[in-house]
Every structure is written in C-alpha cells, then in structure tokens.
Design a protein around this nucleic acid. Structure first.
Lengths: 121, 121
DNA sequence: CTGTATCCTGTAGGATACTG
DNA sequence: CAGTATCCTACAGGATACAG
C-alpha cells in the first residue's frame, strides 16, 4: 500500500512528452548556461562571472545534469592549476536556436506592450 | 538603506534579455497550456482535463499571466452556464514552434541514450 | 462552469565553509 | 581553480472550501 502525504508531488501524467522534454531547460540558470556556451567553450570560472549571482553549488549541479543529458561536454585539461572547459554538443547547439526564438518573441511582445512588458512577467 | 535578508532573492543581473524572455515559459504548467492551445481554443474546464493534476488556482494564475503578456486571449461567452474560451495570439502561436524544437531535440537526445533519458532528467 | 481565498508544506537553491 | 558538504529559508504551488 502506497501512502501519499497530503502535499506530496502529484503522480506524473501517464504520457506527456512535452513536460519531459521541457525538463531539459528546467532549473535555475539552465537556459543561461546553454546561452553563454553558444559561442564556444567556457571554463567553470568564466561561467561563474557570466552568470552573476549563481552559486558554485548550482552551477556544478546544472552542468552535471546537462552533461548527463548529452547537452554539454566537460573537458578537464591537465594544466596547473587544473582547468575545466565546458562546451555544447551538436544537439545542445540546436537548443540555442529554440532559445533564440523565445528571445525574439519576447522582444516583440515587449514592443507590442510599449515598455510595460517586464512588469507583467 | 536597503536591508537584505540572508536568503532573499539575489538582485537581478543588470541586463539579461534571455532571463527576461525565458520567464515567458516559467511556472508550472505554462508550456503545457500553450501546447494544448496549439490546435485552437479550449475552455477552462477542458484545459483542466488536458492537464491532469493542475489545480484550479494555478490554472487561473497562469492563464491570467499569459493573457497579460499577450500570449493568449480570454473570451467569455454569455452562455448559460457561462463558458470561457482561451486561445493563442499570433505571437503565442509562434511560441509553439519553439516548444516543438525542444520536443524534437528531447526525442533525439533520448534516442542517443538508448532509453535511459528519463532517468537522467 | 469558472473561478477565489486560505492554509500549509516540499523543495529549489542561496550562504558559507572547506578540500584536492 | 573547480568543485563538495551543510545548513537554512523563501516561495511555488497543492488541498480544500466556498462564491457568482
């Protein structure tokens, strides 16, 4: 007998490809990381300054997951001190295209609202 | 003098168009709502059954925000009992394209991992 | 049918200190 | 430099009851 506490997470819908796929971009800083890798590899430390406010904990958490998912590649270089470069896989690079579309639409919605866009988010 | 509590939200980065624009899709059920409106208008009640697990509270919250943002349109019909239809604006419809790209990439990542994709999310 | 209003809690993620 | 390990809390969002 499976017990469910009152406010536990609801059972996942039987089949929901969109939700599954959107989890690719879920989590704080995830789209940002992909975005800042769009022009080539970046080191851990560079990403930390690219994303002002990110904690080392979240940055490593998100980088690890994106690597597991096949979106980014981790390349440690045996320099001294050691450095680690992160870059997008081909599929990761395609995600940048989707993000660009959202950015474009966002800008156009903003214009159509004559500047009050941010306050409506 | 502005006081900041210890674990308060960090100050927003000076200029970050991606983050602003990605907020369009933020919040539970937001992409799902857009997705289920892609083929035409739906009533409040229909959306509730389209999205098993959504609470009325969140559904109205998300619908209101998407309306404010210009992504969807709310059309109450003076029937009895009253019904309300929701549909995508032209810009909202363009968001569906971006979601489709993510879904497509998700499927291909899944294949490249030979089925262990879900467990990696 | 289409929502509001409360109340409550799990969890994401920040702060901080520490390691190889 | 590139992370780990802990600890802690704000807040998103579910449950429930109610209203027009």
């Amino acid at each position: 007998m499976i017990k469910r506490r009152k406010n536990s997470v609801p059972p996942p819908p039987p089949d929901c490809p969109l939700r599954k796929c959107m989890e690719l971009l879920s989590g704080a800083w995830t789209p940002d990381i992909i975005w800042y890798l769009r022009d080539g590899e970046r080191r851990f430390n560079e990403l930390q300054t690219d994303l002002p406010g990110v904690s080392a904990k979240m940055l490593t958490t998100r980088l690890k997951r994106l690597e597991r998912l096949g979106v980014i590649l981790r390349s440690p270089k045996p320099t001294s001190p050691p450095t680690v470069w992160y870059g997008l896989t081909p599929l990761g690079l395609e995600l940048v295209g989707a993000l660009s579309v959202v950015v474009d639409i966002g800008h156009r919605l903003k214009q159509s609202h004559e500047g009050s866009f941010e306050t409506r988010l």
